[in-house]
């Protein structure tokens, strides 16, 4: 493995770790909750964070201006240069919950209204949607759905694929034939059609948690074919390897062979495969939610946040409504870089 690949692996792994941490602690990093509305400022544009004020003075602390409606328009704003709100770190704001248990109130950053100023201070780094909800906060919270749906579904299908592939490889016909033929169908079909049709036969209206579980389940079920086929091929080739034959010659049983020789061999396939499946399944969740078949309002997912961009007036006037569609890209790139260099590493380790 070249040095370049090694640095790539490290960078991709670090990026993903940090990203997941941020998404997991979305409450802390987001200035607002995902459902905090600001009826005064629907479709507020992304704000500029200033260091220099209108008079040309430098400020040590970055600040934003307040918003005021542009004349003759309800949803276009301009900066109200008379109101300056400094951006503070570790501000107390709306209470939030981390990991479903721990309650906090401190946010990483935020702006606070000054006493005596009538307009409430708001900071919209990435703009606001039609209800005046902060896009930045919603993208972070939406990651909790999209990103973790991808990871959980990938884990689910990898475990399922590992199990079925092992069984198919170790026990041979006729089990092998049945598993692999069914898996082939799952691999060959257009995944979106398959996903939608499996989803079609399940209840449409449910609580967001139940829908989330359902979406993960559906994606996992649809996706087991590829890992199962990979695992089976590894098992089959490992079974014929001379070192497995030799171990059989020493009297090793099936269980020993699986544990010591075959399972470790499958790991070099299944782990990079998972790194590829995560972004794929993340996109599956985004697509389902976009089509209204996944997690629904008010809880955000990168998919259902994009849905409003289908309206022509929204997409043509408020470009920041497209930003949730950009969110998967860095995850995708990092996962691919990870899988790529990981594969290389495992290959060179053999």
């Amino acid at each position: 493995m070249t040095q370049r690949k090694r640095t790539k692996l490290v960078w991709a792994a670090w990026f993903l770790a940090v990203l997941h941490l941020v998404i997991l602690l979305a409450g802390f990093f987001a200035p607002y909750s995902y459902d905090t509305q600001d009826r005064e400022h629907p479709y507020a544009a992304p704000m500029r964070v200033h260091l220099v004020d209108a008079a040309g003075r430098w400020h040590f602390r970055p600040f934003v201006y307040g918003l005021k409606a542009r004349e003759g328009s309800l949803t276009a704003y301009e900066e109200d240069r008379t109101q300056m709100f400094p951006v503070n770190l570790f501000v107390a704001g709306e209470p939030y919950t981390v990991l479903g248990r721990f309650h906090f109130q401190t946010h990483l950053f935020g702006v606070q209204s000054k006493a005596g100023v009538e307009a409430p201070a708001r900071i919209y780094l990435l703009g606001a949607d039609g209800f005046g909800r902060d896009q930045f906060s919603r993208i972070l919270y939406g990651g909790q759905v999209s990103l973790f749906a991808g990871i959980l579904a990938a884990a689910l299908s990898a475990i399922g694929g590992l199990f079925l592939g092992m069984v198919a490889g170790m026990f041979g016909r006729p089990l092998d034939d049945v598993i692999m033929r069914v898996g082939e169908i799952f691999i060959a079909l257009p995944w979106l059609y398959l996903l939608i049709s499996v989803r079609a036969f399940l209840p449409l209206q449910m609580s967001s948690t139940a829908t989330f579980a359902l979406v993960v389940g559906v994606i996992g079920i649809v996706g087991w074919g590829r890992p199962a086929r990979l695992v089976r091929n590894v098992v089959l080739s490992a079974r014929e390897r001379n070192f497995v034959l030799a171990a059989r010659g020493f009297g090793a049983g099936k269980f020993y062979l699986m544990r010591r020789h075959i399972l470790p061999a499958t790991m070099s396939v299944i782990l990079p495969q998972m790194a590829l499946l995560v972004p794929l399944f993340m996109m599956a969740e985004v697509t389902l939610s976009f089509l209204g078949l996944g997690v629904g309002e008010p809880f955000p997912s990168w998919g259902n946040m994009l849905a409003s961009a289908q309206q022509f007036h929204v997409i043509s006037s408020y470009w920041w409504m497209l930003l949730p569609g950009l969110a998967p890209a860095p995850v995708f790139l990092a996962c691919h870089a990870l899988a790529d260099s990981w594969q290389e590493k495992l290959k060179s380790a053999v």
Partner: peptide, 13 residues
Amino acid sequence: VQMIFQDAGTALN
């Protein structure tokens, strides 16, 4: 009875 295989490369894990 033990066997030594043709291809030493794959005889070892």
